[in-house]
């Protein structure tokens, strides 16, 4: 029998190794270490996929733990990094996804025993769609943000004519980073919209018209996201401005998850919903 703690431990080891080897590869400018880090991250991802599926089956009757939600987010993030690695032959983003995945895993550890008990009344297709769409959207947005931040760092050096050293020498070209940022943003927005709409409809059907703070924050984020999406798609917004806006939206999403969910009185206050294990 595989416990959630064990699944976390195995995946954690792979992601930790991938992070350490990846950072070493970046610092030492070793292609071998970087490639090895990517394979370790891939092993961790495969392991997490299998064990997460087993974990899901176990969790379904009682609901998911908060830790499992964070692990799910890490899984989506790694998936995006692996897709970019496979499709665009760019390992840099996967090398950054691994430490982020590791961070989410470390954060998930204390909450693995904290079940988010979803009432039977909330078990609707809207709920699955809401969670699935938002998590995949967030993972894509995280990937776009990593690409955006890397773009900003590299672009700043090029603009200011600073010397390219160590880590910067192996970074992808800025147009490629911008392309990844654009892809992440353009794919993330429809999913985010789907997640928000299903969430709003679901909340309205369950709680009625409540004016929940989480809903307000989410709609504000959606509006900013819509501006970015529109500007990217139709106005030809590129480069620095787009990268900054993506990073801002992702930061607001993190604020929404980690501050609004835990501090404010909303339907997403998991601690109040949780009943312990």
């Amino acid at each position: 029998m595989i416990s959630p703690e064990f699944s976390t431990l195995v995946t954690l080891v792979f992601y930790a190794l991938a992070s350490i080897v990846g950072i070493a590869g970046i610092m030492a400018r070793s292609a071998f270490w970087r490639r090895l880090a990517c394979f370790l991250a891939l092993c961790g991802f495969v392991c997490q996929t299998v064990l997460l599926m087993l974990g899901f089956h176990k969790a379904l009757p009682g609901g998911l733990s908060l830790g499992a939600y964070l692990q799910l987010l890490a899984w989506f993030l790694l998936l995006c990094g692996i897709v970019v690695w496979g499709k665009l032959h760019q390992e840099t983003l996967l090398l950054f996804s691994a430490p982020l995945g590791l961070l989410l895993f470390v954060m998930s550890a204390p909450y693995l025993g904290t079940l988010v008990t979803v009432p039977a009344s909330l078990h609707t297709p809207f709920y699955v769609l809401h969670i699935g769409a938002l998590f995949s959207s967030l993972a894509l947005l995280a990937l776009a943000s990593v690409a955006g931040v890397l773009f900003l760092l590299l672009e700043k050096r090029i603009k200011r004519k600073q010397r390219m050293e160590n880590f910067f020498l192996d970074m992808p070209a800025i147009t490629l980073l911008d392309k990844i940022n654009a892809l992440g943003t353009l794919l993330s927005f429809p999913l985010y919209t789907l997640g928000i709409v299903t969430g709003l409809l679901w909340a309205k059907s369950i709680f009625g018209d409540t004016g929940d703070p989480k809903e307000v924050v989410s709609v504000v984020i959606w509006l900013i996201f819509a501006v970015l999406f529109y500007s990217r798609l139709l106005k030809g917004m590129r480069g620095r401005k787009a990268a900054l806006l993506t990073a801002l939206i992702f930061t607001l999403c993190l604020f929404s998850i980690f501050v609004v969910n835990t501090v404010m009185d909303t339907h997403h206050t998991f601690f109040r919903l949780s009943s312990g294990r």
Partner: peptide, 21 residues
Amino acid sequence: VNNLDNVYLYDIDDLKDVVEE
């Protein structure tokens, strides 16, 4: 021109650093 977004301008002196490597 270098102050414009998405435009990168290097003059002969700017290339000095690259050249030093």
